[in-house]
């Protein structure tokens, strides 16, 4: 019992010390809050105008596309049926078409004026039999869609650099060697680092989320508790990934390179800035191997589609898997 209490006492000491270090580093602390807010505002301004294409048509399959896609001002996306209909319900596309055995199945969003115009154009230009389907759902602005991406990106940078880079800095400066000469165990040290950074990451995310929502009123239709759970497990997954990178690395420069090699693909392929719908299969397969993808898929499902726990269980399960693997590697390979 006393050894458990001693262990908890040492973990708490490291946890508090790391938090103090972070809070007193006002430049880093401020930047963690200010940077994502600035990006959200910049994007809200940049993308506040009308979209470049007048209409967006999503085609399921690529065979014998309807004539309508040849009209100027019509952008065409090829996608799977389920994803296409999701996009339609968010009014990210105006019309969904599928050619089946010589007839044209199409769907429009009953709340979309653009959809109604495209439907008229389709009827006017198409000779084949038409089969109508309808969805509903409010339009989402780009800012509604991109906010989870920016929160996730901020979490990724905070988690990976705040743990990965800092632990390597401690090692390079000899601080870890000093800690090794105390009864502090690897597990206690690593756990304290994880908990400290998790607190920082969650607090920063909540402040940025609430602050930007008050000013921009972006879409949030799902459960706040579920969103917090995603942030908690997603944050843990990325923090443990940062620890795994730092567990043996001795050079800050090398750690910097490794962290960039991991964050850059996530930034491009996890759907921070743009959707990967319609991108090649292999790109989407790579994206599924990245923790940030699952954080963003789950967060968008909750924020934009009111998804429940069951809907995002796979994403959360995979994120838990990342946590177990990351922490396992860290504890096994960590060197003071």
């Amino acid at each position: 019992m006393s050894s458990i209490l001693g262990s908890l006492r040492r973990m708490k000491a490291i946890f508090v010390a790391r938090n103090l270090e972070y809070l007193r580093d006002r430049a880093s602390f401020g930047w963690n809050l200010v940077f994502p807010v600035l990006i959200v505002f910049a994007l809200a301004v940049v993308f506040s105008g009308p979209p470049r294409a007048l209409f967006v048509v999503t085609a399921i399959g690529t065979e014998s596309l309807p004539e309508i896609v040849k009209f100027p001002g019509v952008e065409t996306i090829i996608d799977r049926e389920d994803k296409a209909l999701d996009r339609l319900s968010r009014q990210q596309t105006d019309l969904v078409v599928k050619i089946v055995d010589g007839s044209v199945d199409y769907w429009v969003n009953g709340n979309s004026a653009s959809g109604a115009i495209l439907e008229l154009l389709l009827k006017y230009t198409e000779n084949r039999p038409l089969q109508r389907g309808e969805t509903d759902g409010e339009a989402i602005r780009y800012v509604d869609w991109v906010v989870p991406g920016i929160l996730g990106m901020n979490m990724m940078y905070s988690a990976l650099w705040g743990v990965g880079y800092v632990v390597v800095r401690y090692r390079q400066s000899g601080y870890l060697r000093r800690l090794k000469a105390t009864p502090l165990t690897k597990f206690e040290f690593l756990s304290a680092q994880v908990l400290s950074r998790l607190l920082v990451t969650l607090t920063a995310s909540v402040i940025v989320f609430v602050g930007t929502n008050l000013m921009l009123d972006y879409k949030m239709v799902g459960s706040i508790a579920l969103l917090l759970l995603i942030a908690l497990i997603g944050g843990l997954a990325m923090i443990t990934l940062g620890l795994a990178i730092a567990c043996r690395t001795e050079s800050k420069e090398f750690a910097d390179g490794l962290l960039n090699a991991i964050t850059f693909p996530m930034l491009l392929l996890s759907g921070v800035w743009f959707s990967l719908d319609g991108s090649p299969e292999w790109v989407q397969s790579i994206a599924q191997a990245l923790p940030l993808t699952h954080v963003l898929e789950a967060a968008r499902a909750v924020m934009l589609d009111d998804a429940g726990l069951a809907d995002i269980a796979l994403n959360l399960g995979l994120l838990c898997g990342f946590c177990v693997v990351g922490m396992g590697i860290s504890i096994k390979l960590f060197r003071w």
Binding site: R9, R10, K12, A13, I14, V16, A17, R18, L20, E21, R24, D25, Y170, S173, G174, Y175, R177, R178, T182, P183, L184
Partner: peptide, 20 residues
């Protein structure tokens, strides 16, 4: 030996005392 940035001697004494 480097110590954690932004911590004072008091913070460090408190930290290291907590290990024992």
């Amino acid at each position: 030996t480097a110590l954690q940035d932004f911590l004072s001697p008091f913070d460090n004494l408190k930290l290291f005392s907590s290990f024992y």
